[in-house]
């Protein structure tokens, strides 16, 4: 239960970190909060040659409002995402989701960038970020680009971020952030990874008509993802019981759960439907 030897680097600028990640012929990994990578290294499921500790890279920090977006640095700890005044005010869904992660001793270390890059299929922040329509800024020694969150996840524990790229920041539209939201998850014990997670945002006009909606789920087999048909089942309706049932049926079509120690396929399907219903109800109630 001890990690294999590695070479440790602690760059103090983004450029220096990206140069280290660009090196050929050695397996180089970024270390953010270490709450997913270090368990894998202790179990020797990961054995990087070089570890690039991001902790001293100032460009990866900070939470700020710029125009119609809130920008959150990749190195922002879950505890900060859960408690920061700007996040709580402008992106309450994200703050709410962050509180559900593990325990305080995990949240004081784990980071937003690490959670998105690790891409656990049932992690909270990926699902909340999908529902909010985030944009992910990545950079490498080759240049910078932006990945829409819907194109970030590429199967369980896999993303479209290249090995030499770093997530620098995540940008969230304030417009989606201010919508009423719902969030529901099923975990065996408090602080455990969820089996299934659902997040919903609704935009409702004065007459109760639904103008826009997003429905995102995790822990449903494959990557966490947006369920477009479920959102479309709600848009243009008054979110009456028939529309909700249609949305839930779309979720049932979209999930591909796999049976494991924690639940059968039928159980996981039932939970995805139930959590979707709960998240929609919470979003409606919050209006």
């Amino acid at each position: 239960m001890k990690p294999a030897p590695f070479h440790y680097e602690r760059p103090t600028s983004l450029a220096e970190a990206l140069d280290l990640l660009a090196a050929d012929g050695v397996e180089t990994k970024a270390l953010a909060g270490g709450q997913s990578l270090v368990p894998l290294m202790n179990l020797r499921l990961a054995r990087p040659d070089v570890l690039v500790d991001l902790d001293a890279v100032a460009e990866l920090r900070g939470i700020s409002r710029s125009g119609d977006q809130v920008r959150i640095g990749a190195l922002t700890r879950h505890e900060q995402t859960a408690t920061d005044a700007l996040v709580r005010e402008r992106l309450p869904l994200l703050a709410h989701a962050a509180v559900h992660i593990g325990h305080r001793a995990i949240r004081t270390r784990g980071t937003l960038g690490g959670s998105l890059a690790h891409a656990d299929p049932a992690a909270e922040l990926p699902v909340a970020s999908l529902a909010l329509g985030a944009e992910v800024d990545v950079a490498s020694a080759r240049g910078a680009r932006t990945i829409p969150i819907a194109e970030l996840f590429d199967g369980p524990l896999s993303t479209t971020v290249a090995d030499d790229e770093l997530i620098v920041a995540v940008r969230y539209p304030v417009d989606a952030g201010r919508r009423p939201f719902g969030f529901a998850e099923l975990a065996r014990r408090h602080g455990d990874f969820a089996l299934t997670v659902a997040a919903v945002t609704l935009s409702v006009d004065g007459d109760g008509g639904c103008r826009a909606a997003t429905v995102a789920l995790g822990g449903i087999g494959g990557s966490p993802r947006l369920v477009g048909p479920a959102a479309r089942a709600l848009i243009g309706t008054r979110i009456d019981p028939a529309a909700v049932e249609l949305a839930v049926a779309s979720v049932d079509d979209a999930v591909r759960p796999v049976a494991d120690l924690h639940g059968s396929v039928a159980y996981r399907r039932a939970m995805a439907a139930l959590l979707t219903r709960q998240a929609i109800a919470m979003a409606r109630g919050a209006r």
Binding site: P3, Y8, R10, L31, G34, Q35, V38, P39, N42, L51, D53, D55, E79, R104, A105, I106, T108, R109
Partner: peptide, 12 residues
């Protein structure tokens, strides 16, 4: 702040 000391490397 509380942290897991099994998930921290010495240089940290």
């Amino acid at each position: 702040e509380p942290v897991r000391s099994c998930l921290l490397f010495a240089p940290q």
